[in-house]
Write a protein that binds this DNA or RNA. Structure first.
Length: 414
RNA sequence: GUGGCCAUGGUGAAGCGGUUAACACUUACGACUGUGACUCGUACAUACGAGGGUUCGAUCCCCUCUGGCCACCCCA
């Protein structure tokens, strides 16, 4: 048996890479338009970084991390998400010193030891963006607008934006105990998972899909009704700014996030087309994270999207580049002629292909068709001698005479 | 980590105890010795995910492993 890739680790094959590039290029274009710059950070960090940022008790840290001890005895982990590493770099290089307002984006592989499913893999890819240093809800709204703009840009209008507020260290603890109290009174009606959640993550019970739990939590207190004045004002402003720009969204008071560092605004772009992997992008505000990691008290907000999930939504659409011209040749001498001409055209930025192996004319034209070449030209002895040839437009078979010179062909094909 | 379903060539798949392992697509070549797409012809699985077992005999039955899909957990 030949060696195969690791479970949950996938190859992005040539037929799919066009789609990936399309997504990445759109993200770069939109993010840079919005004033974001790329940051490239390592895919491995000290394990402690993730414990401290994501949260020791979260599923990610408890059971999903690729952690090991390196040869120097250091506890290291393949990053399960991007924000922690980006913020570590932000603090380490004191980027806030030159400008506390930083707008940065990143993209690359993340690793989580989970059971693979469609749209969920052990090595997966995220494109994320973060704004630091802005308390104002305008930042929240702008991040959301940019996310929505990205999805428009790549031609997906299906994922819907949902927003929520998780409050802050001022109001969340009180709400949390209220909720626990509420749930404890109905513990008999809750499913096994939700009973466990009571102690681990009570908010999660609001998101449970078991009918009994949905019924039992129907009258549960909502975080949104229990926000402190500052959080409530913040959330109200976020909504107003979204309305101001006509950004469509809905409020999902039961939306829960898996990372401990979120405060106030949280959001998801959700789709119904990927089964249980409904979130294609998600994020939120993390006002305490930077100081928690040893940096100054600077707020932040950001999101990450799952590239695999976005690619799945784009479906089978073909993003392959088609040649502008395919040159078919009849003999070895003509092949040399074509080879030289092809390279002149390539220099001028035209996509040109030719046969390398002296195949039959029929084979060559079949290949031209298969590659989707816009034009083809047959070069034989007389063409080389006269310097003129018949150019054929493949879509409709229309033929036209042309000089076999780089300049002329270039203007004809551009 | 839990549960269910599944695994035949490059692809989609028939076959379900003894078959030349069907068919279609793809690919290659040809019909057309200088013109693709349509059509037609020819070729292309010592082989049925891997390893064990049952049997005279296993792609087909049983076990284990590996992988995939779906749901849960959780999440991008």
């Amino acid at each position: 048996m030949a060696i195969t890739a690791i479970k949950g680790f996938n190859d992005i094959l040539p037929v799919e890479s066009g789609r990936w590039q399309h997504i990445e290029q759109a993200a770069r274009r939109v993010f840079e338009l919005n004033g974001f710059s790329e940051i490239r950070v390592p895919i491995m960090e000290k394990t402690e970084l993730f414990c401290r940022s994501i949260g020791d008790a979260t599923d990610i840290v408890e059971k999903e991390m690729y952690s090991f001890i390196d040869k120097g005895g250091n506890a290291v982990t393949l990053r399960p998400e991007g924000t922690a590493g980006v913020m570590r770099a932000f603090i380490e290089h004191k980027l806030y010193a030159q400008d506390p307002v930083a707008k940065i984006y990143y993209l690359g592989p993340m690793f989580r030891y989970e059971r693979p499913q469609k749209g969920r893999y052990r090595q997966f890819h995220q494109i994320g963006a973060e704004i630091t240093g802005v308390h104002d809800p305008l930042a929240d709204a702008q991040v959301l607008n940019m996310l929505v703009q990205f999805f428009r840009e790549i031609g997906l209008d299906e994922p819907q934006l949902q927003v929520n507020s998780l409050g802050c260290p001022e109001c969340r603890p009180a709400y949390r105990s209220d909720l626990i109290g509420f749930l404890e009174q109905r513990v008999d009606a809750l499913c096994e998972d939700c009973r466990r959640r009571l102690s681990t993550n009570p908010l999660r019970a609001l998101d449970c899909k078991v009918p009994g739990c949905i019924a039992a939590t129907a009258g549960a207190p909502s975080m949104l009704d229990n926000l402190c004045g500052a959080c409530d004002g913040h959330f109200t402003s976020v909504k107003r700014y979204l309305d101001l720009t006509g950004t469509p969204y809905s409020i999902n008071p039961r939306m829960v996030r898996g990372l401990d560092y979120y405060t106030r605004t949280t959001f998801e772009m959700v789709t119904s087309l990927l089964g249980s992997q409904s979130a294609v992008a998600a994020g939120g505000r993390y006002d305490g994270l930077i100081s928690q990691l040893g940096g100054p008290s600077i707020p932040g907000i950001g999101f990450a999207m799952g590239v695999e999930r976005v690619a799945l939504l784009l479906g089978e659409k073909d993003f392959c580049r088609q040649p502008d011209l395919f040159m078919a040749t009849l003999g070895a001498g003509e092949r040399e002629f074509a080879f030289r001409l092809m390279n002149e055209l390539l220099q001028k930025g035209l996509r040109v292909e030719m046969d390398y192996e002296g195949k039959s004319l029929k084979s060559q034209l079949r290949r031209a068709d298969k590659l989707g070449a816009r034009y083809s030209v047959v070069i034989g002895e007389s063409e080389v001698a006269s310097g003129r040839a018949i150019l054929k437009r493949m879509a409709d078979g229309v033929q036209m005479e042309t000089a076999l010179a780089a300049d002329g062909l270039c203007t004809l094909l551009c």
